[in-house]
């Protein structure tokens, strides 16, 4: 810790203090919501109205604007959850534990959305709601990992112990992340290969790519907003008997 310059260390220490976090997130919230809408609205307009229909898939491809960002978020949030869990495990930082568990339900939601919208896209395009191929199966396993984390956390009464257990489960599940990502390259599957994250040029027209990237950025912002809301609840539940909560209630009364 003494390797970190004092002001920086102080900043993180202050950030991670529950009362400061609770007050700061309240102040930040309106700005985050504005930024989210500034990304979401042009993203939706660009994706649903401005972008032309796909030459093969017609208008059904417009599901891509929620399907792909949701799938990206399902992986991204998992990595945040596992990283925050590991930080909580090693340094016993309460706020890291809270970020980890607050991410789980949002990650599970995005995984669920990716699976269901994929199904709703697969039916008209592939002629089936579901196939047991590598991409779909590994994404389904991701959903079960998230649900496992949520269930395990709920099953253990002492929340510090619960956080430890959850962090270990999340870390073990990290092996699934590269499997999901590379599944379309390692195995032959019905799922199409990557169109955006290719090393050379993305094989998607710019009028379709821009709204997709806007939606991806909007979903990131959404995650920050939803995670912070969940974290505020979780923090208040854990700290209900703390002095700062009593002082805050006193001030409000």
């Amino acid at each position: 810790m003494f390797l970190i310059p004092d002001p920086v260390g102080r900043f993180f220490h202050r950030m991670a203090s529950p009362p400061h976090f609770y007050a700061l997130t309240e102040k930040l919230m309106p700005w985050l919501v504005v930024l989210f809408l500034l990304l979401l609205l042009p993203g939706l307009y660009g994706g649903l109205v401005l972008a032309p229909p796909d030459y093969q898939q017609g208008d059904s491809y417009r599901i891509i604007y929620i399907h792909v960002p949701s799938a990206w978020m399902s992986l991204f949030i998992y990595m945040v959850m596992a990283t925050a869990g590991a930080i909580g495990l090693v340094w016993r930082i309460k706020l890291a534990e809270i970020v980890a568990i607050s991410s789980a339900s949002i990650g599970a939601s995005f995984t669920f959305i990716a699976l269901v919208t994929g199904s709703l896209w697969g039916k008209p395009m592939w002629g089936t709601w579901w196939v047991w191929d590598a991409r779909l199966t590994s994404e389904l396993i991701l959903l079960f990992l998230y649900l496992g984390v949520i269930g395990l956390y709920g099953a253990i009464d002492d929340k510090r112990t619960a956080s430890k257990a959850v962090a270990i489960l999340a870390l073990v599940g990290v092996v699934n992340i590269p499997i999901i990502h590379y599944s379309v390259e390692w195995w032959n599957t019905l799922h199409q290969g990557p169109t955006v994250t290719k090393m050379d040029k993305p094989s998607i027209h710019v009028s379709m790519l821009v709204p997709l990237l806007l939606m991806a950025a909007a979903f990131k912002l959404y995650y920050v907003i939803a995670m912070l809301q969940r974290a505020r609840l979780e923090l208040l539940q854990r700290e209900r008997n703390a002095q700062w909560v009593k002082a805050m209630l006193e001030k409000r009364a």
């Binding site: 017609g58 208008d59 417009r62 339900s105 939601s109 959305i113 939803a226 809301q229």
Partner: peptide, 21 residues
């Protein structure tokens, strides 16, 4: 373009789940 059910179900469901969170 004839895909109203698939597209709007996707968007509607996403809206409900994200709002709930």
């Amino acid at each position: 373009g004839g895909y109203a059910f698939y597209v709007w179900t996707s968007y509607g469901l996403t809206l409900i789940v994200l709002l709930a969170n």
